[in-house]
Design a protein around this nucleic acid. Structure first.
Lengths: 162, 162
DNA sequence: TGATATAGTCAATAAACTTGACTAAAATCC
DNA sequence: GGATTTTAGTCAAGTTTATTGACTATATCA
């Protein structure tokens, strides 16, 4: 949902809030993303947006092929291209022709991009710590584990041709 | 972030996936929403989208004021208006002038809207059951509880006047 | 060498949101 | 009771993140 640009807190009228798994997952993700993007912006990475987090978070420090980002992000190639166009305009990445395959582009982080990646790592940890302060380390670990199991690919055991 | 229209599965190259709290929250929410919207569409509610889920899911069956939806959804009034415009065009709701306050509008579900709400309740339960089948009832309950605690309003203890 | 597949671009559009400027009705304030 | 302010909502235009469709250039394969 996109989904939510400004992370307007939904936790206002606490009386009659809908209460089901989906809402709780949404709110958890919303809270995490808002904290993360806010901290990145506060750190000076003002070009950083939720959508760009999806790409930057999957960029290897040494760069990669555009096509690798495609499978890693799960975006369409057009969507990825637009995101990369934006990142390039913001001086976060550059794209160069792959010498081994002149159809392909190698996406590389600029100094600015590398700085952001390093801050991102720190900030991810910091956000986790903030959550840890709320629920405790053990429960946070349990939560992560449960989330992983929740979305573990069930197709690996039974593939019912889609 | 929205954020994700088509729920393209990101669980492909399982080798080098990023592994942090944010990703797991994202994937959990993504999976839930995709299952929910898909099932709603399959049930014949083809007008149902992720964004609309946010509104429909908070509509009391008997209708409410537009301004109430505003605080309930956390959207801006303009965003809400556009969503309601769309829902009205799709025959899911109608808006009538509030006789007690002629500035205000009462948002009411049509027959089509009420049918969707009833199916939504069933489908939410069904999605939960699918997840339950993966991790078990006890762990799913634990997960919900942890998620609730994760985003529990910390301002309720210390209110630093906004 | 010609057919086809792959990597990426260009163009147009949509969904879900944003800010800013506005109208009409109600509430408040001397 | 009339002027002012607040509340409820609309209109208009723009942004971010995504979509589908048509296209070009390079590589691969028969």
């Amino acid at each position: 949902m996109r989904i939510f640009r400004k992370s307007r807190s939904l936790t206002k009228n606490e009386g009659d809030l809908p209460d089901h798994l989906g809402i709780h997952l949404f709110r958890g993700y919303e809270a995490w993303l808002a904290m993360f993007v806010e901290a990145m912006n506060a750190q000076g990475h003002d070009w950083f947006t939720p959508g760009r987090a999806n790409i930057i978070g999957r960029m290897p420090r040494e760069g990669c092929k555009q096509s690798e980002l495609l499978t890693a992000t799960g975006l369409t190639k057009q969507a990825l291209q637009q995101m990369l166009d934006g990142l390039e305009q913001n001086g976060v990445i550059i794209r160069v022709v792959d010498p081994d395959d002149r159809r392909a582009r190698l996406v590389q982080l600029t100094e600015k991009g590398r700085a952001a990646l390093m801050d991102a790592d720190r900030i991810k940890a910091s956000v986790s710590e903030q959550f840890e302060a709320r629920v405790g380390a053990a429960d946070l670990a349990t939560l992560e584990d449960l989330l992983k199991r929740l979305v573990a690919d069930p197709a690996s055991s039974s593939k019912t041709g889609d």
